[in-house]
Simulated assay, not measured.
Amino acid sequence: MLPDPDVPSLVRELTRRADPLRLRHDVEFLADRPRSRTRAPEAMLRAETHVTSELAAAGWRTERQPFDVRWRLGSTDRRGDHPLALGLRLHRRLAGANLLAGLPGGDDRPTVVVGAHLDTVDGSPGADDNASGVAALLEIARLLGRLPRPPAVTLMFFDMEELGLIGSRVAARRLRRTRQIVGMICLESVGFFAGGPGTQLVPAGFGAAFPGVAATIRAGGQRGDFTLVVHRRSTRAAASLWRRAAKVAEPSLPVITLRDPRPDGPLGALAGLAVPPVNHLGRSDHAAFWNAGIPALMLTGTANFRNPHYHRPTDTPDTIDYRRLAAVAVATAVTAVSWPAGGGR
């Protein structure tokens, strides 16, 4: 983390450097076919090669971290728009690999992890879910690689998110043993925006559980034109910082912050059983870090509650807003290097 950064100046500097065309190139390369360790392994290796090559060009060192796990409760990666319990599955054995990247000189200090999942469901090229997150992460690598002092930021590309956060669950445990992690930012389906009225849906029971956020969405005509920042008490200040940075990077990008009331750690995961709507707030890799007691944020365009192409063959690169995606990358890069001490103040 950089000492006392001038956040607006840093945002403006990185905004000048960010390139929507580079983001488009990465999304188009990744999302020309489905990517899955179990269903499309050659495409996953191709995606890994692209990520590693782009990271190396930006000055990052990448470590491939294989894992082999047995009897893990997760989910199915069949195409379709039914999340959570409707797709529960017990996996007998899964062998995959995460990618971890760091800058030389930046890996011996307390670190912020920024991550995105590389895989897709069966049959979907996954431009929004989640080539958009991966492309933003690669742009963050380029932006941070040019800073005068290497920041203490770790980038992670997770495997098997679509099978039930398998890769991030492994990664969170490993990182806790080897590094001091002060926070984590997850990029999940961050490239699709819909500006028409009524394009933003909310889950059943959401209005009762989060009346303030539901009222904000209604007041905006239920337009799917915002980025949602999901946080907990431990990352309230970091969420506020991301919102401020995004406003400077792209004034036309609305941001809504939503606090998950659950505590970090295993107790938070169990609490979701009592209040089902909050389970939607843990539908990506940040949840593995929450459950490991690590403060985390999720950035998202709300996936199936906005994007009609979610988990379908039509989730293609032409549906992505690359200008706003560049702003997401900039705000995330700035938040990572400026992570507030204590995170939740």
Rank of each mutant, 00 (worst) to 15 (best):
L138S: 01
L14H: 07
S168K: 05
R142K: 02
P295N: 09
H82N: 13
V112N: 07
R312V: 01
N304I: 12
V229T: 06
I185T: 04
A18S: 08
T154R: 12
L137N: 06
L273C: 04
R232I: 08
I217A: 01
A152D: 00
A97R: 01
H25Y: 14
L103K: 08
P66G: 03
T300P: 03
R92V: 15
R236C: 11
P295I: 06
A97G: 09
E188M: 03
L325K: 00
R37N: 13
T257L: 05
D32M: 13
T154V: 10
P313K: 02
D4F: 12
T257D: 01
S284Q: 03
P151M: 02
L270Y: 08
N98A: 04
L99M: 02
G282H: 15
A56E: 10
L144V: 00
M298G: 08
L144C: 02
F305Y: 10
A331E: 07
T62E: 02
A135T: 01
A292Q: 15
G343R: 05
V182Y: 14
A287F: 10
L325T: 02
S338G: 07
P20L: 00
P20H: 07
E28D: 06
W71L: 13
S252H: 13
V11T: 06
H117F: 13
V328I: 02
